[in-house]
């Protein structure tokens, strides 16, 4: 089985199978995004207290979920990197970090835009905002570290260690900030037995969340494929590929 996995994850095979995955992830993302945006922006009720501002949530919450999901994917890639030293996983770490940092920033910015009319300030030192900000710093650290090495493979392994130290620390940081100060509303979706959001809002939100996840993988595969070609530019299969296309 391991020989199969190694073959499956070898740069050349990854490049060929990821093409169709990237395509399908893009298609799913586009479909779900258009459905989700239609329902969330046009065909869902305005909140009785927040008014139309509630529609920011349909971007904000999926982005915030994705910022954490991205770290989980990055940590999985980090484990694979440290144990099996698979090149594709090494590439994934830095690419996950870039996308994850973008979505963390998106979550923070949409949160600020929502916070101004709702809380009366763009920024408050609230627990969730702060832990999201710290998460952004952690992403920056991984990006900076993986780019700092002359040897890309050493950089990837250093970033992998940092990611794993981070994954141990994230819950601790999260709860320490939670006890420190909290103003953000409690979770309304994770209580699956009796969600406090009505279905007319919950469904568009979940559709948007899935759309964001699909988009994440589409971009991840795209970036990983580009980076892979760059790193493997001196190998025979990339040269052959280039000859074919040119």
């Amino acid at each position: 089985m391991f020989t199969f996995l190694h073959k499956f994850a070898s740069p050349q095979y990854f490049y060929s199978w990821s093409a169709s995955w990237q395509k399908w992830a893009s298609i799913i993302a586009a479909l779900l995004m258009s459905v989700g945006l239609y329902y969330s922006l046009l065909n869902s009720p305005a909140d009785y207290q927040q008014g139309e501002t509630v529609r920011i949530m349909y971007v904000h919450v999926p982005a915030a979920w994705l910022s954490m999901f991205g770290y989980m994917v990055m940590a999985s890639a980090a484990i694979v990197t440290l144990i099996w030293r698979i090149k594709v996983a090494e590439i994934m770490i830095a690419q996950c970090a870039v996308i994850g940092a973008s979505f963390t920033a998106l979550a923070l910015i949409t949160g600020m835009l929502w916070g101004k009319p709702m809380w009366g300030a763009y920024w408050v030192w609230d627990a969730r905002l702060t832990s999201e900000l710290v998460l952004l710093f952690l992403y920056f650290g991984v990006i900076a570290l993986s780019g700092a090495f002359d040897d890309e493979r050493a950089g990837a392994r250093a970033a992998a260690i940092l990611t794993l130290v981070g994954i141990v620390n994230i819950p601790i940081i999260h709860y320490s900030v939670e006890w420190w100060n909290t103003l953000h509303q409690g979770p309304t979706v994770s209580k699956f037995d009796s969600p406090s959001a009505p279905p007319s809002m919950l469904v568009p939100l979940l559709v948007m969340a899935l759309a964001f996840k699909a988009y994440f993988f589409a971009v991840l595969f795209k970036r990983a494929r580009a980076e892979l070609l760059l790193r493997e530019r001196n190998t025979s299969w990339v040269k052959a590929l280039l000859k074919e296309t040119v």
């Binding site: 710290v134 710093f137 920056f140 940092l162 130290v165 620390n169 940081i173």
Partner: peptide
């Protein structure tokens, strides 16, 4: 320092 400081938060 950039890498370490976020871990000092707790």
């Amino acid at each position: 320092s950039l890498l370490t400081l976020p871990f000092y938060v707790p």
